[in-house]
Design a protein around this nucleic acid. Structure first.
Lengths: 346, 346
DNA sequence: TATTAGCACTCTCTTCTAATGAGTGCTAAA
DNA sequence: TTTAGCACTCATTAGAAGAGAGTGCTAATA
């Protein structure tokens, strides 16, 4: 049904269309790809491919354009190939740029997104690390003055969260130190869920006087250990999407840019789709959201200490340069992971 | 030269043009504004106003559109009127929304920008607080484990900044406490500049062993006390700018959106233009940047404890609804200031 | 049986022309 | 000083004609 020649024709069309954004006719194929057959034969093959749902015609006398299904076939084929060996020189060069610009994690991701967008000329996306079931490494209460205290949580990825709060009645430095030590001894190594339980255990019954303080701590622990709510989405090079003829219609442009700027839906989408594969791709209508029906998203993961905790990717028309982008994203994925391990992990 | 009737005609044209975005003809004015004269008279006045550089013609047989100079005249006139009394009900309603959504300063500004954009249907801007010459309120060094220490600075606006760093050789808890106390005693109340001097004074000569630690602290102090570099720019409702016919041309849209997304230039612009007036307006070519030659920016300031430390504003075509926007921005300005004082100061 | 040349047909896109209409500027009268 | 009247200008729109790219079918060919 899908013999080799049909596939060759299909991939030739996909390739041409990715480059030109114009419907591809049979003669274009015979001219640019040496398949050893005439345009009439290609026409017949194209007709078959259309019947298979792999090609579409904008109108009866136009060339063909690939369907989402065709892109999926093509992308799966790419992903099944052995990954191309990375250009180490290029990789190192990018790594140096990223290292120089980034002192903090969020900054690293933002810079990565920026550089990624510049290199690829696509709009890029990145999410900040998602700490799920992180553990407490250290907690500390500090007096700022008699009525203000500062609370600090460090998690096992060495991320620091803090908050200041005011007290009804003054607390002495000593009391606070004792409380700090107590919290450390009881909570170190626990996850957010376990902390919830610990607070309700007998150990904490005696601290009834400090209930007010304890309650204030919970949201900070949440932010530090189970920050699903606090994951940030960075996008860079939004206007690059306007370079694609697909979005030359102002309403389409508005729709996709709004979707990206809105962040909520996109973030949810990035957080829920698979963290398993290194590269994950959704093509056009594979996506739930109607605003994305003409767009594709490619993402790659990054990790700290072996734990996959975030993603970086690009968004653009379904007519994407999948091959190039997959390789570039793999490169960024390794780079970010390496830099994170350097920046934080030991 | 500019008698009252001319002004009336001019303001009528500005008003109409703000609403319609179409060149205004003499008949439109006689129909919609009761000036008691015929269209021929208006035509003569318009001709005079054009000679004065206040009106332009897109082409010889079109109506007139206001020039930047005309908008400036109009805006100065508005700013010289007594501020309209604020709609307290509306103000309170917005305040409640802002309070509910905002637990932190950056979040407050982002939410404010979002709500501002929704209410006005313009693209909004906000910058996070700029701490210039803030003072140290409290510093603290905390051991996380033997080779990792956490450094914390609280400034006089109760903003907390921190960083973790690693040591070559272990430091005991006691040493660190002594060092914390020493730093507090010497640095409390100092500005960033003064801290630089203090570090070079005799007091710190004895700490030669801790030079490594001391050097790590400087960037954190900088961030906490003189954070010009770290001021963030939030923009919301980018796509709303695409609703204006001025930007229906995709290249114009790209240019302005890039400029906003780039952030650097816009941030610099917001930081340097006057913090003196409550509302500040730049119209079209009054602006240095060529990308803004067809756009206007209106900003209002906000403060903590009486100190003006940031801005919120809108950006759009020079054909802006200045009157409405000035009032809305004043409303946001007061609200943000009030919420900040509630959230932090006291 | 698979491939190919040839040709009629389809549909979009561009170019050209003519008509429409909003608006100005000038002149002469009130 | 104001106004009515009118010729003139220019952008915008609609319609018509022509060009061009491409398909799909048929009949001939290897």
């Amino acid at each position: 049904m899908l013999d080799e020649r049909k596939l060759k024709v299909l991939y030739a069309i996909i390739n041409s269309y990715i480059l030109s954004a114009e419907p591809i006719g049979s003669r274009t194929i015979t001219k640019h790809y040496d398949l050893g057959v005439s345009s009439a034969t290609i026409r017949n093959e194209m007709s078959d491919l259309e019947e298979l749902g792999l090609l579409n015609k904008p109108h009866s006398s136009a060339g063909r354009i690939p369907s989402d299904k065709a892109y999926r076939l093509y992308v799966n084929w790419i992903l099944n190939q052995d990954p191309m060996t990375q250009d180490e020189g290029k990789k190192e060069k990018i790594k140096q740029i990223l290292i120089n610009e980034s002192k903090e994690i969020d900054q690293l991701l933002q810079t990565s997104a920026k550089v990624l967008s510049e290199i690829t000329n696509y709009t890029s996306l990145a999410i900040s690390p998602q700490f799920k079931n992180s553990k407490v490494k250290h907690v500390q209460l500090v007096t700022i003055d008699m009525r203000q205290i500062l609370f600090i949580v460090v998690n096992n990825s060495d991320i620091v969260k803090n908050a200041i709060f005011k007290l009804d009645k003054p607390v002495s430095n000593n009391t606070l130190n004792t409380l700090s030590n107590f919290l450390n001894s009881k909570l170190k190594g626990l996850s957010f869920e376990e902390i919830g339980k610990a607070f309700n255990s007998d150990d904490f019954k005696e601290l009834i006087d400090y209930r007010q303080i304890i309650n204030e701590l919970i949201p900070i622990f949440n932010k530090s250990l189970d920050n699903n709510e606090n994951v940030e989405l960075f996008s860079e090079g939004i206007t690059r999407i306007l370079n694609f003829p697909e979005y030359k219609d102002i309403d389409k442009a508005k729709s996709i840019i709004s979707f990206i700027e809105e962040k909520d839906l996109l973030l949810e989408l990035l957080l829920t789709n698979s963290y398993k594969q290194d590269v994950s791709i959704t093509i056009g209508n594979e996506n739930q959201h109607s605003q994305l029906k003409d767009s594709s998203i490619i993402t790659a993961t990054y990790s700290i200490g072996g734990m996959t905790i975030g993603k970086i990717g690009v968004i653009g028309p379904t007519r994407m340069d999948y091959l190039k982008l997959i390789n570039t994203l793999r490169l960024f994925s390794t780079n970010i992971t390496e830099i994170l391990d350097m920046l934080i992990g030991k």
